[in-house]
Amino acid sequence: MSDVSSGRDRDRDEEGRARNARPRDGLGRPLPYGAEGVARQPEGVVRSPEETVTEAQALLDAGRPFHAHEVFEDAWKSGPDEERGLWRALAQLAVGLTHTASGNSAGGARLLRRGAGGLTAWAEATSRPAPYGIDLPSLDTWATTLAEKVEEQPPTLDAAANAPRLHP
């Protein structure tokens, strides 16, 4: 199958699925072919919840929230049904930070609020305010404060400097 707009054959992974092989920057934005990007996060990795939190925090601290989102997405897809809302909400927070750092303040703020609401709803439904040591109330405060900040005056945001702390 060809990509008509570029005249190139579509990039495909080992299973033959379409997958863009362009290098990416730390926020997951595609770079031109041949440019040096950051290593992609492997997809479909099954981790323990503790490993998920540790790896995602390291990626957030390194200014790579898009990659942290992929770690949370793996947990969302492979974890037990009763935890999917937690991991989905955390992935939304990471994508919200990604959009905000990329200059998409409106989309970033929307996803930060959606993720914060998802954490609150999950905690209320499960009566688990701190699963795996994750400080849900602090994450809610972080997300709503950052959303308000970028809505009032869209800044150029450094993802690492504005990364949340998952543990107290």
Rank of each mutant, 00 (worst) to 15 (best):
V150L: 02
R128E: 13
D135H: 11
A121V: 06
K149Q: 13
A160R: 04
N162S: 11
S138R: 15
E152L: 08
A143F: 05
L146R: 00
P129T: 13
T141R: 11
T145P: 06
T144C: 00
L119H: 00
Y132W: 15
E124G: 09
A116P: 00
A125L: 04
T144E: 03
P129K: 09
V150S: 05
A143S: 08
T120N: 04
T145D: 15
T144R: 07
S138H: 13
A130N: 12
A147Q: 04
G118Q: 05
P129H: 13
T120V: 15
E124D: 14
G133Y: 08
P129S: 07
A161F: 06
A161Y: 08
P129V: 14
G133N: 10
A130D: 14
P131S: 04
P155V: 05
P154G: 12
N162Q: 07
T120R: 09
L157F: 05
Q153A: 15
D158N: 12
L136G: 00
T145Y: 06
A116K: 01
T120S: 11
L139Y: 02
G115Y: 03
Y132R: 10
A160Q: 04
G117Q: 06
A123S: 14
T156R: 15
L119E: 00
D135G: 10
T156S: 14
A147N: 03
E152Q: 13
W142F: 10
P137V: 09
N162A: 09
E124Y: 11
T144A: 01
E148D: 14
A147G: 09
V150M: 01
P131K: 05
Y132E: 12
L119A: 00
T141V: 11
S138M: 13
K149V: 07
Q153Y: 08
A143L: 06
W142C: 06
L136I: 14
D135C: 10
P129L: 09
S127R: 13
A143W: 02
P154R: 09
L146A: 04
A121G: 07
T141D: 11
K149A: 14
T145S: 15
A147C: 09
A147H: 03
A125P: 01
G118R: 02
L139A: 07
P131T: 06
A147D: 07
A116L: 03
P129C: 12
G115D: 02
L139Q: 06
V150Q: 02
T120A: 09
T126E: 01
L136V: 12
I134L: 10
A147W: 05
P155T: 07
P155L: 08
W142D: 04
S127I: 10
G118F: 02
A123M: 11
E148N: 10
T126V: 01
D140M: 14
T144M: 03
T145V: 10
G115H: 02
S138N: 11
S127M: 11
T126H: 00
D135P: 12
G115S: 05
D135E: 15
R113D: 08
R128L: 10
A123V: 10
P131E: 02
A147V: 06
S138V: 13
L157C: 02
L136Q: 05
